[in-house]
């Protein structure tokens, strides 16, 4: 059983400070285990990133946390409410923004938001006020009466976000919210997320784009093969799992030089064109010696910054996008 090191009692979060607690949460589909048994705590007011390749179990995890899929084991508590025994209260505290554009294309944004708001018991003037607010967050106030099917992908993504916000949840769960959006809409979504955090909302953000997670999130958990393999702040993860690397740009027969370097430093050697990268640190000296022995001209030597990609590589032995 994999247990995340950000689990209860290990991350120092007071129980009252926890907005989402996953306790041994797991899911099997027949003989296949999609999610093993996850322990995780997300604290009030933070943006927590759940990072992992497609198929890592991110969507299944949040589906269980949101009450969409029943867990095979463990449970989730949202704002203190158990998703199994107190499901309605737990669900009221969550706003789910699914990966799909979960909208009615043949309705207007106002009609969509009215319907989703009514599911949470909103009516009358309060519903109208929330709709106007959510439309403002999405930047769609001037298109409130148009049919959704006439919108661009980016506008739909923003409305998808607004639909998850209509009841002003304690915890906003964003499942890959920027898939297929233009840079302008991505920026708008990021700005909205930061503004929501400033209002005190807690956000769980899943993505397989590490740049997004690095830019937005206060803390991160990395998932792979249905388990959390590491979690913490970005600085903690870099310090523990990503020491960075050495980049060497060469001039000469790239294949022969790369082969010689790889033989000398079999751990963590990669190549992109004329640039060779080495990690961890013990590989630096033998690799450089091997390159010099070939007689190749070294054009540049530099340190590679440790990022989530290198952390993931160190943890799983493969690149995030190759996984």
């Amino acid at each position: 059983m994999n247990r995340d090191n950000a689990g209860p009692g290990q991350n120092g979060a007071a129980a009252s400070d926890a907005v989402l607690e996953l306790v041994g949460l797991g899911k099997d589909y027949g003989a296949r285990t999609a999610v093993q048994a996850i322990d995780l705590v997300i604290r009030r007011g933070e943006i927590f990133g759940l990072l992992g390749p497609n198929g890592a179990g991110k969507t299944t995890t949040i589906s269980m946390a949101c009450g969409v899929v029943p867990p095979s084991r463990g449970t989730a508590r949202i704002a203190g409410h158990d998703i199994r025994s107190d499901a309605f209260a737990a669900k009221r505290a969550i706003g789910l923004v699914p990966q799909d554009l979960a909208l009615y294309d043949d309705l207007s944004p106002r009609q969509n938001l009215a319907f989703f708001g009514q599911l949470y018991g909103l009516t009358g003037a309060e519903l109208a006020r929330r709709i106007d607010w959510a439309l403002g967050v999405a930047g769609l106030g001037d298109r409130a009466g148009d049919l959704v099917k006439t919108f661009s992908g980016g506008m739909k993504r923003r409305l998808n976000l607004a639909a998850g916000l209509i009841h002003q949840p304690t915890l906003l769960v964003l499942d890959e919210p920027t898939v297929g959006v233009d840079p302008q809409s991505r920026r708008h979504i990021f700005d909205s997320i930061r503004a929501l955090q400033a209002r005190g909302m807690t956000i769980l953000y899943t993505s397989h784009y590490m740049e997004e997670v690095e830019e937005l999130c206060d803390r991160v958990a990395i998932m792979d093969a249905g388990a959390v393999v590491a979690s913490g702040t970005l600085a903690e993860l870099r310090a523990q799992h990503g020491a960075g690397g050495l980049e060497v740009e060469i001039d000469g027969d790239g294949d022969a030089i790369a082969a010689a370097a790889a033989a000398a430093a079999p751990l963590g050697g990669t190549r992109t064109g004329a640039v060779l990268r080495f990690e961890p640190r013990p590989a630096y000296a033998p690799a450089l010696a091997a390159i010099e022995a070939t007689g190749a001209q070294i054009k540049r030597i530099g340190a590679q910054r440790a990022d989530l990609e290198t952390v993931f590589l160190a943890l799983t032995g493969r690149g995030l996008r190759d996984a």
Binding site: S63, C66, G67, V68, A87, F88, A89, K91, R92, I94, L96, P98, Q99, D100, L101, A102, L103, Y104, D105, F116, L119, Y120, G121, A163, G164
Partner: peptide, 13 residues
């Protein structure tokens, strides 16, 4: 197909 079913399941209903 659209994902609205998932959103409905996540609502307190």
């Amino acid at each position: 197909r659209s994902g609205t079913w998932r959103r409905l399941l996540a609502s307190p209903v």
